[in-house]
Structures are given as structure tokens and as C-alpha cells.
Write a protein that binds this DNA or RNA. Structure first.
Lengths: 248, 248
DNA sequence: ATCGGATGAATAATCGATTATTAGTGTTAT
DNA sequence: ATAACACTAATAATCGATTATTCATCCGAT
């Protein structure tokens, strides 16, 4: 989670307080530290992180721009309430966009892309989806490997605008998933990912797109249902043996 | 530009300074008041509009989030430099997304949608693309009618996430167009729009999608080329008799 | 008892001023 | 003449404090 510790000279987002606060806030929301509907009070956040209101405010505005928070004029900021309707729309948007992007990738990807797909799939397949500490949810490492795999598959398309759109939708998906009752016990995400990799590297655009569509459809179906009642960051003991995460 | 004059109780963005400043800044960039590469200095903007740095800063952050400005850490904000590559990517992204959305619209749109499509097309067809005052560029009223027509066509899909994506890409397109040498003298945008309306209302998804794809492809082709050298808001006398704008 | 308006605490929004970083300019040593 | 360094002006980033708005509570009239 806190990965800003030792970056020698890496990212362009260097030492700007607002950048760190933004990243922290974003991660906190994605991790579920704040429940949907919860107010994000600038003063509290500022005190917690020992910074002024201005930087928190800037971070909040950015987060709102990404759809990770709502802003109510003169009423402050809040984590968006879970909306089944919105989740289904996100899923549909992904089904509209990603198969088309995957086709482009398969048609255009070069050898470097192939290599990166292999690497990403390997890493994903070797990362445990669940670890004892992190409660009922899949591990942060797995979530990241999962994201990188899906993104790498699409990166062959070479279109940064489309990839930005993918990033945005992925983020929205992950947040929705975090607050959904996930219920896809028999789902075999590992197999689906392997089939995706194979079709992509075989340059079989039709199959790849079809598999991805199925993948996304299953995920959407799995997440349909009630916004669950879990209070907030309460690691209740897993009621059922942890299945594969519903993995798109 | 100032369209916040007489909204009885319409928009949620009520009286918040940052909102007004944001809208103003956004419009200014879209109108071309600031040339690509120009620095957007918070102090100047604050002085011009008689507000504090904080609100200008907030507006700038939002504008950056929309892709209408770049941020260089510790170096301030700037209007993004024109990039032919990026423009082509935007055009491709629109070709990827919009025909698919139009299909959904045609399949799902109800009578209300049909009525709004007719209304939007009527308004577009009756709005002059050029007016003497506004130099070589199409009028603000036409640009808005044009946007509303295209958006209305897609609104039948009923997917807010996809429509948000459309809005984002449309904005990027308009900015790119503003700073491109537009060169499509013989283009008949009026005809293309009428064909779009007809196919949509006839519920002919294939034809509608095809026409839209052509529309977008022609626009992209028309805008390919050099980032032109016009200094900044310098209304040079139109060198050629104004043709239809390259209209997607 | 209930509705409506006054009162005050909480906090969102904005401001004016301070600190930190950058870019430019001039100077000096090689 | 040039390259490295010091100094300075401009401005980006941040802070602490002020003003404006909302929400809850309390009181009094019907």
C-alpha cells in the first residue's frame, strides 16, 4: 500500500505534498477504508496527515474528477454510494470497449507486447489471490497483477486515449467490486486468464474478443445483487472457504 | 460564454466561486484564448477574475483532470501542446466507441429519444455554422448544437458511463480541432448529419453505425496535418471562402 | 403536541501571506 | 571563451486564519 517510501528517482510525480496526499486518499478509498456514503472531511484528513486544508482539497478535487468521490456543493465530499445501476453500466461499457481494444492489440501487438503479456500472465498465475492477513478480500498484490495482466493485453493497441479510458473504467470496476457482495463461488478465473493469454498470443482476435466478453459478462453477473451491509473495514472471519475472486 | 445567467434552479453547480472560475477557464481554453504550450499562471488568472489563488488552483486541477491542461510539477500549468499523434488516437477512440454506442441507441431508444433526435437535428440544421464576428471558426452556437445532436443520437443507449466517456472524447476532439489546420473544403456535413438522423430514426443500426464511422473517418482525415502556426486569438482574414466545418 | 423560526456549533469555501523551487543573470576561475 | 557557481527575481506550493453556509437544536406561538 505505501509504495512511496523508496523511489530513488522514478516517477515524475516527485515531492509534491498534494501528490502524496492524493495517492494516499485514492488508495484508502480503493482499499475500502471509507465506506460508501461516508463523508470525506477535509479537516480530519488534513489533521491525520499533518498537512494544510489546501492540499487535501486539491487531492479531493482530483479524486472527484476520477469518479472516486462525489462532491455536494457546500456540503463537502463523500465516497459515492454503491449503485447497482452504475455498476452494471460500467460493466456494459467495458464489454463495449475492451473486446474491441483486444482485437486491435492482437492485430497490432509486436514481439515486445507478446513478451509482456507472457510476463504479466506468469506473474498473475503465481500471485496468491488471498492471503490470511487481508481478510475476505483478494490481496493487494493479486489485484495489481490482475490489473497489469488485463492492461498489458490491451496495450498492444497502442492507443493512449483508449488505454486511459480503460484505466478509468478499471478503477471504477474495482471500487464497485470492493463494495459488492461477490458471489461467484464456482468461477474459474485462472482458466479464463490462461485462455485469454493463449488466444492473444495465437493472434486469434475472434476467440480472444469472445473470451474477454464472456469474462466480463460473468463478472457482471457475479456482482449483480445487493449492496452488502458490511460496516466498514471490519475483517469478519471468512464465512465460506475463499473461492477464486470474480476476476475481471 | 456566460451561460450561468438565468438558470432558475437548474444545475447543481450553484454559486461556488471555483465553479464559475472553472467554467470560465474551460471555455477560455476551448475557445482558443490560450495557445497550446502557453503557461496558465495562477496569479494572472486570479488577478483577472478577482479571486484568490486557491480557487484558480482548484479550477486548474479540475481542468488538468479533463485533459485540457498539463501540469508540470513545480513548473505550473500549461495548455497542452498540439499533438497530431494524440489527435489521431482520439479519432480512433471515437471510431471505436461511438458506432457501438449508436447501435445500442438505435436498438433501445424510446419515443422520447426519437423526438429529441429530431429536435436536435432541426436545431443544428437551422443554426448558421459561421457568423461574421467570430472569425474563421464556426460559431459557438453551432458548435453547441453540433455537440448536442451527436450526443442526443447516442443518449438512447442509456448508459451514463459511456456517455461520460463520449463527453470527454468530444471535448478533446473540439480542442484538437480548434488548433488544427482544418482542411476539408468539399465536405458536406449537412448531408452527413441528415443521413445519420434518418438511419437512426429508421432503426437501421447497421447503416447508422456505418454512416457515423464514415463521418468520423472523414473528420480525422480532414484534420491530419500540421499544427498550424496561428499565434493566438489572432482573427486573420479568412483566406478561403468558409466551407462547412469538418463536422464530427 | 406540533410547526416555524431563531440560535449556535460544525465545517465548507475562500482569502492573504509565507515558504520553497525554478529559471534567469551575472560573475569568476580556468 | 567557456563552464561552473552564486545571486536574484518570479512564481509554484503550502499554510494559517477568515468568512459563509449548512445542520441541528431550542424556543415560542398556534
Amino acid at each position: 500500500m505505501d509504495d512511496q517510501t523508496n523511489h530513488a528517482s522514478a516517477s515524475p510525480g516527485k515531492r509534491m505534498l498534494s501528490e502524496q496526499v492524493y495517492a494516499h486518499l485514492r488508495d484508502a478509498i480503493m482499499r475500502g477504508d471509507h465506506a460508501p456514503g461516508d463523508a470525506l472531511k477535509p479537516q480530519d484528513l488534513a489533521r491525520e496527515q499533518g498537512v494544510s486544508l489546501a492540499v487535501v482539497r486539491e487531492a479531493l478535487v482530483r479524486v472527484v474528477g476520477e469518479g472516486l468521490a462525489d462532491r455536494l456543493p457546500n456540503r463537502g465530499f463523500a465516497v459515492p454510494a454503491y449503485s447497482d445501476r452504475r455498476w452494471q453500466e460500467i460493466a456494459e461499457a467495458r464489454r463495449t470497449l475492451e473486446p474491441a481494444m483486444l482485437r486491435m492489440s492482437v492485430e497490432r501487438g509486436d514481439v515486445d507486447w507478446e513478451a509482456r503479456v507472457r510476463a504479466a500472465h506468469h506473474r498473475l498465475s503465481r500471485t496468491p489471490a488471498y492471503v490470511p492477513e487481508e481478510g475476505e478480500h483478494y490481496s493487494g498484490a493479486w489485484a495489481e497483477a490482475h490489473r497489469v495482466f488485463h492492461r498489458t493485453l490491451l496495450e498492444g493497441c497502442g492507443n493512449l486515449v483508449l488505454l486511459e479510458t480503460f484505466d478509468r473504467m478499471w478503477t471504477a470496476s474495482e471500487l464497485a467490486r470492493r463494495w459488492s457482495a461477490h458471489r461467484n463461488p464456482g468461477r474459474d478465473g485462472v482458466l479464463e486468464h490462461r485462455r485469454l493469454e493463449e488466444a492473444a498470443l495465437a493472434r486469434d482476435a475472434d476467440t480472444a474478443a469472445e473470451v474477454l466478453t464472456q469474462h466480463l459478462t460473468q463478472t457482471a453477473a457475479g456482482l449483480t445483487g445487493d449492496p452488502h451491509p458490511e460496516p466498514a473495514a471490519a475483517p469478519s472471519p471468512a464465512p465460506a472457504p475463499a473461492p477464486q475472486p470474480d476476476s475481471a
